Amino acid sequence: MTEQQNTPLRAAFIGTGGIANAHAEALWDQPGVELAAAVDLDPARAQDFASKWGVARTAASLAEALDGGGLDLVAICTPPSSHFPLALEALARGLHAVVEKPPALSLAQMRQLETAEAASTGTLSCVFQHRFGSGARRLLAMQDSGALGRPLIGTCNTLWFRNQAYFDIPWRGLWDVEGGGPTMGHGIHQFDLLLHLWGPWAEVTAFAGKLARRTDTEDASAAIVRFESGAIATVINSVISPRETSYLRLDFENATVELEHLYGYSDTNWTVTPAPGREDVVESWNQGEDLSSGHAAQYRALLRSLQAGGQPPVSIAHAYATMELAAAIYASSVSGTTIARGQIDETSPFFTRMDGHLEPWKQEETLNA
């Protein structure tokens, strides 16, 4: 790939279902980007997508797309079980790849992706778009400046609702296909933002279960996370909550900062409540432009990094800490023990599959039948 600004970056979309539209929309308005190929096993769906977004050509595989012309960047928008092999293929071909969440199904796969990226001229970045809204960037800057004081207590809730029909789709709710339930597939965006803001986590104690849906994975989990800073946060992930919300509350010494939204936010979704005598915090918060979170914001940051020849934001190494917390929530809930960061290594059954190959809630269903 050439980095010259007058050479368009040629992008392909692997998978042309619903989420691919978010990627296409995000890249549509970016200067210097050509929507070059739509890749899908269903030719009609690929053609519909290509017609909608003005994509130059369609193909049934990445190899076929490359035969039709050069590519620089691929957006992997397929079901979760295919993220890992497609990312490996893209890296092996020297392409930059953007992969939807979860980037892989296990920590073992994450380590393999790190190795593949190190050997490739391409790069791999993971879609954790909540990091890129102006509210998150402003909050991170205020933390770093010391204006907010120490982080103390946090709440991180992803309370969504998915009915039984959602899980009746054949590839949903299966460990080998999705890697887990709402902890992996829904709440991961919100607690990724929590980790991005509050830094490394130290240990976690969690519960999870199958409370209302017929599915192999959990439909809800709840965790208490202690950070290396000493701060403590609760993290709840649910797809059985009728009033849907994504809610983050962070209590610092000098202010409480809250974010409530559903699938994306702007500055209007944030609230800052100062501690008595610290009204200056609100004045600092109200400065700067309002940029929404979302795929477009992340792609802007990604394209800047590629043009500069640097590493993309949310690299596979950066995403490992988020995936490791997901694995620890599962390990703690299944084992009934507290899990420390770094504890899930190659010797752990939770390293190669999030449920430790135990299928705990499937067994629970059998016992309760």
Results as ranks from 00 to 15, higher is better:
residue 253 E to H: 05
residue 270 W to L: 04
residue 262 L to W: 06
residue 270 W to G: 04
residue 282 V to Y: 02
residue 283 E to V: 14
residue 292 S to C: 12
residue 255 A to D: 10
residue 269 N to T: 04
residue 253 E to F: 02
residue 265 Y to K: 00
residue 258 E to K: 08
residue 278 R to S: 09
residue 265 Y to R: 00
residue 291 L to R: 12
residue 281 V to Y: 08
residue 256 T to L: 08
residue 258 E to C: 10
residue 272 V to T: 05
residue 292 S to K: 08
residue 266 S to R: 10
residue 266 S to Y: 01
residue 257 V to L: 04
residue 280 D to P: 03
residue 260 E to C: 10
residue 289 E to W: 04
residue 274 P to C: 07
residue 288 G to Y: 05
residue 283 E to W: 09
residue 286 N to C: 13
residue 255 A to E: 08
residue 263 Y to W: 14
residue 276 P to G: 02
residue 264 G to L: 02
residue 276 P to H: 07
residue 263 Y to V: 10
residue 285 W to F: 07
residue 273 T to G: 00
residue 286 N to H: 14
residue 273 T to V: 15
residue 254 N to R: 14
residue 258 E to P: 05
residue 279 E to A: 13
residue 256 T to P: 01
residue 264 G to E: 10
residue 265 Y to A: 08
residue 270 W to Y: 13
residue 268 T to V: 13
residue 267 D to L: 15
residue 287 Q to C: 06
residue 280 D to S: 12
residue 260 E to L: 10
residue 292 S to Q: 11
residue 264 G to N: 08
residue 266 S to G: 15
residue 266 S to M: 05
residue 260 E to K: 12
residue 268 T to E: 15
residue 255 A to T: 02
residue 285 W to I: 06
residue 286 N to A: 12
residue 291 L to G: 09
residue 258 E to H: 03
residue 269 N to D: 15
residue 279 E to G: 14
residue 271 T to A: 12
residue 278 R to M: 11
residue 269 N to H: 14
residue 257 V to W: 04
residue 261 H to G: 01
residue 281 V to M: 07
residue 273 T to Q: 12
residue 278 R to G: 04
residue 278 R to W: 08
residue 283 E to M: 09
residue 290 D to F: 00
residue 267 D to I: 09
residue 262 L to P: 00
residue 263 Y to I: 07
residue 271 T to Q: 15
residue 254 N to H: 15
residue 284 S to C: 06
residue 277 G to P: 06
residue 251 D to N: 12
residue 252 F to R: 02
residue 254 N to W: 03
residue 260 E to R: 15
residue 288 G to D: 08
residue 259 L to M: 11
residue 267 D to Y: 05
residue 273 T to Y: 11
residue 258 E to F: 01
residue 283 E to N: 12
residue 255 A to M: 05
residue 290 D to W: 00
residue 274 P to G: 06
residue 269 N to W: 00
residue 271 T to V: 10
residue 274 P to W: 01
residue 288 G to C: 08
residue 293 S to T: 14
